[in-house]
Design a protein around this nucleic acid. Structure first.
Length: 502
RNA sequence: GGCCGGGUGGCGAAGUGGUCCAACGCAGAGGUCUGCAAAACCUUCAUUCGUGGGUUCAAAUCCCACCCCGGCCUCCA
């Protein structure tokens, strides 16, 4: 299997350090707000990576962190932090804020059918680990203390910034954030931020440098090492982390281990989901969440399919129409699978798609062996092709058409098609075999009719049709159409909600 | 300002020298089915790859210039 490595900016043959288990660390969210759909793209990517490794027979140890320590808010209000700000806005304790948005985040992942990591690791559970780590950095002479905190001296490690390809001379200190007085080098960053004498933070801890909070980059070095060791296989994150956050993490790792190795063999970054006005940004205020899509009647898995339709290293242009198109596509896929199911007797293998959700990182060898047992040669060919796309840096956009190829195959028996699709879906996570078309029709929050009202009108229309009173039947249909309901006479389901796209 | 990445049909998006003179999905068009409509299914849909030059037997794919877009420059997936 070949994966793009941001360290070399090349696709390289992947070999895990430990053949029995691949160790992955994924940078998680800061939980001061709902995740926007751009954030969520990162976890669809991570999940696809993990599922692909599992599909290829590798077990994974996957850690995702939760950043529940607030960091600075924005260019404007230096000194405030996002967690504190959210706390004030919502008039709630900062710990409640963290808890609330952590739950919301995990719920989003659940709705997107993102497999849970082997371990969730939360920053505030590791403050003392961070202090211990920082002291090692201090003893190694990699830090210096200022009025505002303990800083990392980036000249103390070899090749600082290799990940970014950005020459230090090109950096303009303070281009976006106010400069810190006394820093030795523009690229130096905070290891520990001291609380100001005047304002106590809700979240602060006593440390060798006084009360304060850890620098943002520290937690990832500390938690990845704690659970995955000083060397592990893959570290993932959004592309915005490539230039700063991950460079700083690497610097910390190097200073801590006294080695030039970055810590992870592979650094992988997903590109942004963008809209016409630029990247989706939490700090700019308005942004789309998964819940806001659901409120419009768009199923979360339509977003998953949307995210899968583009290679993870390409920018993905957001449009609600394209998203709605993916919902249609998903409905057609699910409908086609249901049609096949009606031709096939229930069988033991059908339990597999639902049971995969229990996985916390195990290889998919067992489920695949059940699904792919004694497939006809044509079926094996399709899966071979599927695999060729996966192992070339996760070419999911090229793998997706194989779903249609399988469904439309001229000679494969229905049961074989279903098992092939089930195996592919172990990677794609679209719930193709467990979902009904009706599951994908969500009532928009703003819909003017209730389900009961729709059902009543549907009955009226059917009675009118049976009585050949087509004027009444059409009248009811128009009424339903106007209320955002699509009719599909003689189908199962007989009607669906139309998503709201304006 | 510095650095990185990108501009492919109405939209999203594969493809980075010939076996693809451009996959796939959505939309559109025609058809089957249907009281009508929808759903479903079938067929169809870029002589062209931001613009202008160049290299080559051969370029969307390489080179140069220009235009436009996105990212990073210590909050961000």
């Amino acid at each position: 299997m070949r994966l793009f490595n941001s360290l070399s900016r090349k696709i390289e043959e992947f070999h895990p350090l430990d053949p029995s288990q691949t160790r992955i660390y994924s940078c998680g969210p800061t939980v001061y707000n709902d995740a926007h759909i751009g954030n969520l793209r990162a976890y669809v990517f991570t999940d696809t990576l993990r599922r692909t490794l599992n599909w290829k027979g590798r077990a994974v140890q996957h850690v995702i962190n939760i950043t529940d320590v607030g960091h600075m808010t924005s260019d404007q209000d230096e000194g405030e932090d996002k967690m504190e700000l959210a706390s004030q806005k919502m008039a709630r304790d900062i710990w409640q804020i963290a808890d609330h948005f952590t739950r919301a985040f995990k719920n989003d992942l659940l709705r997107l059918n993102i497999l849970r990591p082997t371990l969730w690791s939360t920053a505030t559970d590791h403050i003392h680990d961070m202090i211990a780590f920082a002291r090692v950095l201090e003893r190694a002479g990699a830090t210096y203390e200022l009025e505002s905190g303990l800083y990392f001296d980036t000249t103390r490690v070899p090749d600082y910034g290799i990940l970014s390809l950005t020459p230090q001379e090109g950096q303009t200190e303070g281009a976006r954030v106010e400069r810190v007085e006394g820093k030795r080098n523009p690229s130096d960053f905070a290891i520990w931020r001291k609380s100001s004498a005047t304002a106590q933070r809700q979240m602060e801890w006593w440390s060798p440098w006084g009360p304060g909070a850890p620098g943002w980059h520290l937690e990832c070095s500390v938690m990845s090492m704690k659970y995955l060791g000083t060397r592990f296989d893959i570290h993932t994150g959004g592309i915005d982390h490539r230039e700063i956050h991950h460079c700083n993490e690497i610097a910390q790792n190097q200073a801590y281990t006294q080695q030039s190795h970055s810590g992870a063999n592979w650094w992988m970054h997903n590109n942004f989901l963008i809209d016409r006005t630029g990247k989706m940004s939490k700090s700019k205020g308005e942004f789309l969440t998964l819940s806001s899509l659901v409120a419009r009647g768009i199923h979360p898995l339509a977003f998953r399919l949307f995210a899968l339709s583009t290679h993870y290293r390409s920018e993905l242009e957001f449009s609600i129409d394209t998203l709605a198109g993916q919902l249609i596509r998903l409905k057609r896929l699910v409908g086609a699978v249901s049609a096949l199911r009606r031709k096939v007797e229930p069988a033991a293998w059908m339990r597999v798609p639902a049971e995969i959700g229990f996985s916390s990182g195990a290889s998919f060898s067992w489920p695949r062996s059940i699904l792919e047992r004694d497939l006809p040669a044509a079926g094996q060919t399709l899966l071979d092709h599927f695999e060729r796309e996966l192992i070339e840096d996760l070419m999911i956009p090229r793998a997706l058409p194989l779903l249609d190829e399988t469904l439309n195959h001229a000679t494969l028996p229905p049961e074989a098609k279903l098992r092939i699709l089930a195996s592919m879906d172990l990677v794609l996570g679209l719930k193709l075999l467990t979902l009904q078309r009706s599951d994908l029709s969500l009532r928009p929050e703003r819909a003017e009719l209730s389900v009961t009202e729709v059902e009543t009108l549907m009955t009226q229309r059917q009675q009118a049709r049976r009585a050949k009173d087509f004027a009444t039947a059409d009248q009811v249909r128009n009424r339903l159409n106007a209320a955002g309901v699509e009719l599909m006479d003689g189908q199962e389901p007989a009607w669906e909600w139309r998503p709201i796209l304006e």
